[in-house]
Design a protein around this nucleic acid. Structure first.
Lengths: 386, 386
DNA sequence: CCATTAAACTCGTCCTCCGAGCATAAGGGG
DNA sequence: CCCCTTATGCTCGGAGGACGAGTTTAATGG
């Protein structure tokens, strides 16, 4: 381990970061964005080509002048394996430096037992390791639950107890990066989705309960141990109502299928997502009244988060989209009435997430790529190749 | 404006940042912290000495070995003027690169009219400009209200309307950096106070209402326009209660003197801070019951913020300290019962702020110093001197 | 076919950081 | 009191990135 020389690969790291943020970017555009002289651009791309971090292909000419080149990940370059674990299925993809998904897999769980599922994920890691060898630099895993230092603390939908996720990569020598699925889908929105370019963004996603994250310059506020973003457990609701999380009055209890069932005086549904979709299909007065209540709680809570964080934009995903669509006016009224007056002049837009199915996968990949494009990681990659 | 050479002053910037974060640090300690070779340390300190950014004085010997030197700001080096505007007074200090306060001033407002107060602040800026000349690099202003791009949006305690704060420095050519006082006192705590070293910290301060901020690695989450941190306007309270901010059910209304008065069935006090102190001195049952209610709302809300942000530590200031002390057990119970179960094993400590009177001043200075110790600012300083 | 344009390439120079070797200023044991 | 140990500062040669000026190249358009 030679100590990394200060600044050695600084510009190279910046170039690769550009590549992950704006896939298909040209060399000339990168040079403009980073304010590099053409000489430096020539030099840095040559160096990156030499170490198999990128290749260049001629770009279609854009008017007069010598045509530039499109930067692409090198065919022998580093990759990450992104995994997205869901309640009844899992997905994976191998991701190169430009964020493109290769080799996508989708499989339903045959068993939902934790050990079986993790074993299947582990097999996928081993397969990728065989196929990509030393090119596989990192495994990034999205999980529907609270994650703390690569441990799953609670996963209500999976009904798993506390669990060490490290076994997914154990023995392969590939580092693991596990994160909450809502957080990661927020990362995807902030990087290449509806919140692209926003300095501060709030992302929320309703499935069972509500998850989300605060994103500052595309970086999620993960907290001390990675458990940040549990907005569902802020006490926006009725304090007399206990939440399975251990607290009381959680927002969670006001905005999903469980809330709809309560308003409709029905027992708590086994599958709150399916139940919500069912209620949304109903047209009777009771169902619409229940939806109205839930949408009000949603709009009101979002307004509270806007007051607290002053985001440029709020993105919402999952059931939040059909719920809001079912009562657009109710939502808008609740949202606006919950804002502090000075926000009402230009309230942050509440936009539907654009990465809907593969948000967690893309977000997981993005955070892993952040590591790969860091200066020390590039220096280590170069050192390993020699 | 010559374009800044990439990396030119990178290490120099790192050294100055160390100086602001740990005043009185020695050259050897900086070299260790930044993993600099002794040769580089010699070089960078010499360079910084040459451009009047720091001086060295012999350090008291610490056992064997050649004694090192203490790094100090240069007597001809850059300074910032920190201003802290309060309801009935204002304070100022000139701050050098090590964060030491020089020339502290404290004045009560003779008139509270916005124009008069701002004129007085402006006079202080002009005085500093006369005394320090080109050494004065920035003015940093803490304001008890919501600040957005150097505009004061609302300041309930001052009863001012929207206001452009730029007039405080206009014509002097010195850039202004205005921020919310609660946010800035949080910065002070996160840098050199009770939250020093915390990756994620939540800071809260009760005066009239509650202000605060989320701090990530000592950087406040200021939001899109600098209005972030208005935790007092999250709907933790009774939704039927309208808040002067325009929303309803704000936490603000549950935790200050206005809440105490409501519980005691008295009219809203003119000075909620003095009223709170008065109630805290009372020992009758009604007063204690009112305090208990307020403290419960405080503990419960803090728990919600901990669930959402997963901080390493929470710091509290202002009336939160005596309120909590008046009902310590009530607070602890409310706090713990509001946490998600998995947080209860090691709940983040809720610590009293240590910078009590001069938190906003020190925080304002710290953010200004962040600018001064940035690479482009150093390059600009060097360019201006030649 | 040639002027225009935008971008890539070449090369000399500057600057920072590093590391090895040397110098220096303390403490402490004989 | 001398000299060894220890921690640090200083000197200097070398490596390597970034810059910028000048040159070359590959397109468009008249």
């Amino acid at each position: 381990m030679t100590p990394v020389r200060r600044g050695q690969w600084q510009t190279a790291a910046d170039v690769l970061t550009q590549l992950t943020r704006r896939p298909g970017i040209t060399r000339a555009a990168v040079a403009r964005a980073l304010r590099l002289s053409t000489g430096s651009a020539t030099e840095v791309t040559a160096r990156l080509r030499d170490v198999h971090l990128l290749t260049e292909v001629p770009a279609p000419s854009q008017g007069r002048g010598r045509p530039t080149t499109v930067l692409q990940p090198h065919p022998q370059g580093p990759v990450v394996l992104a995994l997205d674990l869901r309640q009844s299925s899992w997905r994976s993809a191998v991701v190169a430096l430009d964020g493109s998904l290769q080799d996508p897999q989708y499989k339903r769980h045959r068993s939902r037992r934790a050990q079986v599922v993790l074993k299947n994920l582990r097999r996928e890691v081993e397969l990728a390791k065989q196929r990509y060898g030393a090119r596989l630099q990192m495994v990034s895993l999205a999980v529907p639950g609270t994650v703390r230092d690569n441990h799953l603390m609670q996963a209500p939908t999976l009904e798993w107890v506390e669990l060490d996720l490290a076994q997914v990569t154990e023995g392969t020598g590939v580092p693991l990066l596990a994160g909450n699925d809502a957080t990661l889908s927020g990362v995807a929105e902030a990087r290449t989705g509806a919140a692209a370019g926003a300095g501060t963004a709030v992302h929320l996603i309703i499935e069972v309960g509500i998850g989300g994250t605060l994103l500052i310059d595309g970086v999620p506020a993960q907290g001390a141990s990675g458990a940040g973003g549990e907005y569902g457990h802020m006490p926006f609701g009725d304090r007399s109502r206990p939440c399975p999380c251990g607290a009381r009055g959680c927002w969670d209890l006001e905005i999903d299928g469980r809330a709809l069932a309560r308003h409709l005086k029905q027992p708590t549904p086994d599958d709150p997502v399916a139940y919500t979709e069912e209620v949304l299909r109903r047209t009777d007065r009771a169902a619409r009244a229940a939806v109205t209540k839930v949408v009000t709680a949603l709009g009101y809570g979002i307004a509270g988060l806007v007051n607290a964080h002053d985001p440029d934009v709020v993105t919402v995903g999952g059931l939040a989209i059909p719920l809001r669509a079912a009562a657009e006016d109710t939502f808008t009224e609740a949202y606006l009435s919950g804002l502090m007056t000075f926000h009402r002049g230009a309230p942050p837009p509440v936009l539907p997430a654009t990465h809907q199915p593969d948000g967690p996968l893309r977000g997981a990949a993005a955070l892993a790529l952040d590591h790969l494009t860091s200066e020390p990681a590039i220096a280590a990659w170069v050192a390993n190749r020699s």
